[in-house]
Design a binder for these strands. Sequence first.
DNA 1: GTCTCCCTGTTC
DNA 2: GAACAGGGAGAC
Length: 273
Amino acid sequence: MPELPEVETIRRSLLPLLTGKKIEAVEVYLEKAVKPSPGKLRDGLPGREIVEIERRGKYLTLQLDDGQRVTFHLRMAGRLVFMPVSAPLEKHTTLSITFTDGNSLRFVDPRKFGTVVYHAPSEPPVGLRKLGPEPLTTPKAEVLARWQTAAARRKGPVKGLLLDQEVLAGLGNIYADETLFLAGVRPERPANAISAREWEKIYESMITVLNDSIGHRGTSQRDYVDGLGEKGYHQVYLQVYGRKREPCRKCGTELVYTRVAGRGTHYCPHCQQ
DNA sequence: GTCTCCCTGTTC
DNA sequence: GAACAGGGAGAC
């Protein structure tokens, strides 16, 4: 499931492949995933060049030379992969953008949750418009202030706050669990009961976890691959996520699996208090 | 603010 | 053969 490190890895892998490429055609195979309509993409994209690729949270945006954008959200299982036009069409392909040089960008999404939006810069999709700031480039003091302000008016679990994309963009289930493990904080603790000292620890842990994962080209626990179809290897370094009932790597205690904020949640009952 | 639904491959 | 995985939009 692509979260910030995976989407950033996809962005970096696609950037040299797509920059300057001229679009020849657009094939849409799952109409309802494409907004405002497949026809608008088929009319607007051919002839345009890709000038830049931007990531915000888990959204990836292609910028075109006429200023228009194509914004993807891969949700749980989406893959965005560069390949020759001649490559066989994979099952569950949502859309293919073909380029004049014989290559194409395929959006393959078995769960059919992913979305593609063609839009002007002034009219981003609703989720992107409401998105909180970027974890890795926003000053620490600002992130801490944002968390603590949000925490003050909610008594739900701290993990739910970390997953809230309007508070801060980019963390999903894997990195919320990993961040809280490294911080030594239990995911179900009420957000308004976390001390300033603990918020600081959570911040430092989040930065470490995200940077480590980007360094490892993301976590390929299940479907995730980069823009060239290559897996990441951060799954090797996961401390708690996906390790239900296995021993904690720090203390050996059996890890707990439970449900917090509506998500499957992993933690160490000894290391996290 | 909280709940439901969207989907299908994988796991139990 | 059922339960589960899960981000976010939209409904309550």
